[in-house]
Design a protein around this nucleic acid. Structure first.
Lengths: 199, 199
DNA sequence: TGAAAAGTGTCCGAAAACCAACAGTAGTAA
DNA sequence: TTACTACTGTTGGTTTTCGGACACTTTTCA
């Protein structure tokens, strides 16, 4: 297959326009209420072109969610280590850099929950996996269920991420202390018994 | 020829993209520094397509300036009467409504001064004409030159317009008094001698 | 000054997008 | 039920855009 499979610019533009249109429409309608015709009208593309790119509106949503999921997945490990080590500033900074131009898109897609296209659920699932792995590796003699603590950690991290995406980097200082306090509380539960006595 | 000569959507999109690209580039470069290649790169259009729409970058600028000039010209008379009668709020409100989506574009184009494409100069010229006509019609026995007073009036009005375009409607109240005071001072000079005694 | 680099404007075959029309499928209201 | 309206996917002929090459001019800088 082609090593360099460059897409025609027209395809890129068309897909960009269609995706932007969907996001725009999601600001005022639910995904179910949006029709292919709506998307085409707003993006100034013909319906035949739409169907040349996507099977239907669900396929469009799938591909968008997949794209952001892959982008996030490629860095979960890094982001995870950052929250575990209390590097909240680095976490937020790196996250916002990765998502730079896509913040708005991700925030909007977080509100859509379709069976096979749920960005928020995908993010949570990826994080949960990391937390489970981490807990199993580090904590040997745990007195609380792994699933519970993984869920706690995941939700803390997810909250930080969603807050960062909608508020940006400027207000970070105001919340790092609170986040770290909660993080510590979670970490104590996860550490093996013998390490607890260190505190 | 076709009575209804509807343009292909692709043409509309291409021209929109090219024009947006030029405006964007004007935020960081002068018009002279901008190349056709720059515009094409930013707008994701091929150079051959650019030349299918415009003769060169000057033609592009001309067409944009012409468009806004025509839009403004279709209302000068109305806007003129508004300032003469001291209806500053109506002037600003109507102006902003007409220019709604084009404020940014107009503000940017006001900074470009090319021999055959100077939006600011066009606006001024249209206003000056109105003021001259007005003064000649109303004032019979003037003791100051028509050109001077027309220029004064035009500059006052132009200042209001530029201020409104960049500041919007919200801050209007803070300046109407000042504008009206200056307007009155100009109007007094324009009125025939016998009317001056009314004050 | 002279050679390299960057920009201009034009051309053409191939690819993509357009439009309009089509049959088919809900959902809705008389 | 029927008839109406709105939306879905698909098709084929037409128009536009693309990409890359071309000859040419202008700018850069060693």
């Amino acid at each position: 297959m082609g090593l360099i499979m460059t897409k025609d610019v027209r395809k890129i533009k068309t897909e960009r326009d269609i995706q932007q249109a969907l996001l725009k429409l999601l600001e005022s309608k639910t995904f179910r209420q949006i029709t292919v015709a709506d998307i085409c009208q707003l993006s100034l593309t013909s319906r035949s072109t739409f169907y040349a790119h996507y099977l239907d509106k669900y396929d469009l949503l799938d591909k968008m969610v997949d794209g952001f999921t892959k982008l996030f997945a490629s860095r979960v490990n890094l982001r995870f280590n950052q929250i575990v080590q209390g590097e909240i500033n680095e976490l937020v900074h790196g996250l916002l850099k990765d998502m730079e131009d896509n913040r708005r898109a991700i925030i909007i897609l977080f509100t859509v929950h379709e069976p096979n296209a749920d960005l928020e659920a995908n993010f949570k699932s990826l994080l949960l996996q990391e937390w489970k792995k981490f807990i199993k590796e580090s904590g040997s003699n745990m007195d609380v269920p792994v699933d519970l603590m993984a869920s706690m950690g995941m939700n803390l991290q997810m909250t930080v991420i969603e807050w960062a995406l909608s508020h940006g980097e400027s207000e970070i200082d105001a919340v790092t202390a609170a986040i770290n306090a909660i993080r510590d509380a979670i970490m104590v539960q996860i550490q093996p018994i013998n390490k607890k006595s260190d505190l």
